[in-house]
């Protein structure tokens, strides 16, 4: 009898635990369907020099970080110095996808804040962005030597994320 009286309390506690767990999750994080899939093909002119091409073929043979950015994106501005530092300190291969931006703005942005990218693809229509499932700039992908996407970060990369997730993964993928 006594035990039965505790049932509603138990049900309530289960609810509290479930709702509490729900609060710790970020609803903006949509798991990417592209993880462990081949990088979607694209072939775009580079931001700095329209005659140069950037394509998914550039990713083959080395572990690559692919960062989606735009000069209109304020979170990219927070993220940028971290990427610049990261590229310099760890000699990482970083390519950029300049998403729905104006070329002149993008070039000026790289001039002011520094350019951590080997090259940035100029995706003015956003079509490549759609193929990559981009919905919240900045986004960062890690692609292995075979051109398979292994990780996606939605929102700005932080020092902590680099230390905890990105760097260990790159080290691991380099040995594969």
């Amino acid at each position: 009898m006594k035990l039965r009286a505790l049932l509603p309390l138990l049900a309530f506690l289960i609810l509290v635990v479930l709702l509490g767990y729900g609060l710790t999750r970020n609803p903006k994080d949509i798991p990417s369907p592209l993880i462990n899939k081949a990088a979607p093909a694209f072939d775009l002119p580079a931001v700095l020099n329209p005659d140069d091409k950037v394509s998914d073929k550039n990713f083959l043979g080395k572990v690559t970080v692919f960062n989606v950015w735009a000069s209109w994106c304020s979170a990219c501005r927070d993220e940028h110095p971290i990427l610049v530092k990261f590229a310099k300190e760890h000699k990482t291969t970083i390519y950029g996808l300049n998403y729905k931006d104006q070329r002149a703005d993008a070039i000026r942005w790289l001039g002011i804040f520094g350019n951590p990218y080997i090259a940035s693809a100029y995706d003015v229509t956003g079509n490549t962005g759609i193929d990559w499932g981009v919905y919240g700039v900045p986004e960062t992908f890690i692609i292995d030597k075979k051109g398979i996407i292994r990780y996606k970060q939605i929102g700005p990369v932080t020092d902590k994320i680099i230390a905890d997730k990105i760097l260990p993964l790159i080290r691991k993928l380099e040995k594969e």
Binding site: I30, P31, S32, P33, L34, I130, D131, W132, G133, Y135
Partner: peptide
């Protein structure tokens, strides 16, 4: 759409 953005 699902291939790019999941069932979401």
């Amino acid at each position: 759409m699902v291939e790019r953005f999941t069932d979401f």
